Computed example of a mutant assay.
Amino acid sequence: MAEETVLVTGGGGYIGSHCCKALRRAGYTPVAFDNFVTGWREAVRFGPLEEGDLSDRARLDEVFARWKPVAVMHFAALSQVGESIRDPGRYWRGNVSATLNLIEAATAAGCLDFVFSSTCATYGEQDGVVLDEDTMQAPINAYGASKRAIEDMLRDFSISACLRHTIFRYFNVAGADPDGEIGECHVPETHLIPLVLDAISGRRDAITIFGTDYKTPDGTCIRDYVHVCDLVDAHLAGLEWLRQGNSNRVFCLGTGQGFSVREVIEAASRVTGQPVPVLEGARREGDATQLVCGSTRARTELGWDPQRSVLEDMISDAWRWHQRGAYKN
């Protein structure tokens, strides 16, 4: 019997590639769909590649007809908050319009199970609270707004076309495949842990702390981190949730605790055994003091257990990958 296929948009990206590996291990054939604007061909190694853009409906129809996937796992997105403020049109086209194309192609092909990688940026500035699925959504930039719009689209298509969906909201993803096959690589890099590791390895002069006067124990911002392997485990559990006939559901993924910038830097120094060159800068506009989310629903209903989401483990796995060097498409 042939393996069932799952279409993974953004399958050459950081989270998408890890999801493809997890799908392969679970017995599916992951079909990576990517335009490689931010993804990497080198990361597509666990199943077939279909190169294309989500704005190309004909290409999507071709891929659905060829592979007949049982589900879509949608990771492809533009995700830089600052860029979304400067150029909101790019985010409404690249995230919302493109996803509408994908949803319409999926429903036309009868592929009605849809797992969506959303974001806690849909909540906007809600400082100092533990966010959950019932927290009011009030995005403050085009990135968060575009993801919120996609959530709304999924709701509407669940009514009109019986599209079943699970939605995952989360903050910072960290770590890498413990086997060292794939990892985190962005151009430009904007995520704290790889930036710290760049500073340790000499790829950048120093890491800058933006703001040291926040009302936190050490004066720096606090953020929630989830290991990428824990994250994709939740997405696979969300897929099985749908395939077992359960209803549409939203899940937040986080530890509910978070770590400060200084805590991340100090942990990286301990893990690598090397000092971290640090500069202190002014606050950045729009940075909240503390952003964390809970995961009670995911733990209870999906049985999600984020065992690798320990700061030292995330940094250790990332460091192992980091020492290999960047992808080269």
Rank of each mutant, 00 (worst) to 15 (best):
M136D: 15
L7V: 02
R93K: 14
L279S: 09
P69L: 03
V228Q: 05
V44P: 04
V187R: 15
L197F: 02
E301D: 15
S146W: 09
L54V: 00
T166V: 11
G39P: 01
I140W: 14
D218I: 13
C229V: 08
T29G: 02
R297F: 07
A142K: 03
L60W: 10
D113G: 03
F33A: 00
M136N: 13
P194H: 07
T5A: 13
S79E: 13
V196L: 13
S309W: 01
T119P: 12
G12E: 12
R59Y: 13
A105H: 12
S260Y: 01
V129S: 06
Q307M: 12
N172T: 07
S316H: 07
R297Q: 11
D53V: 02
V37N: 13
C293N: 11
A234S: 13
R320M: 05
A199M: 13
H74S: 03
Q274H: 14
D233G: 11
R270T: 10
G202A: 08
Y28D: 04
G183Y: 11
G258Y: 14
R93I: 15
F116V: 02
A121K: 12
I209N: 07
G175D: 01
I200F: 08
M314V: 01
A267N: 10
D34K: 05
R270W: 08
G11P: 00
G144A: 04
A161G: 05
R320E: 06
G294D: 09
V115D: 15
E42Y: 02
S146K: 06
T38Q: 10
C162S: 14
Q126L: 08
G281R: 08
R41P: 07
G52K: 05
R66C: 00
G281Y: 02
V276Q: 05
N246F: 01
V96Q: 04
Q323I: 00
T166F: 06
F251S: 09
A298H: 03
A268C: 10
L163H: 07
G245S: 10
L279E: 14
P306E: 04
D53F: 01
G180I: 02
A32Y: 15
E50W: 07
R283Q: 14
T272E: 09
T212D: 10
E285N: 08
A161S: 12
G273M: 12
W321Y: 10
C229K: 05
T296R: 11
H191T: 10
V81E: 13
E133K: 04
T289E: 08
V292E: 02
H18L: 07
E62Q: 12
P194E: 09
L242Q: 05
R262W: 12
N101R: 15
G94N: 10
D205Q: 06
C221E: 08
A237C: 13
C252I: 02
T119R: 12
R66W: 03
S295H: 05
T255H: 01
D230P: 05
P30W: 13
G175R: 06
A174W: 10
V292L: 06
I315C: 02
C293D: 07
E50C: 00
E266N: 14
A32N: 07
G11C: 02
A76I: 00
V115I: 01
A26C: 13
V8F: 09
E312G: 04
L163Q: 02
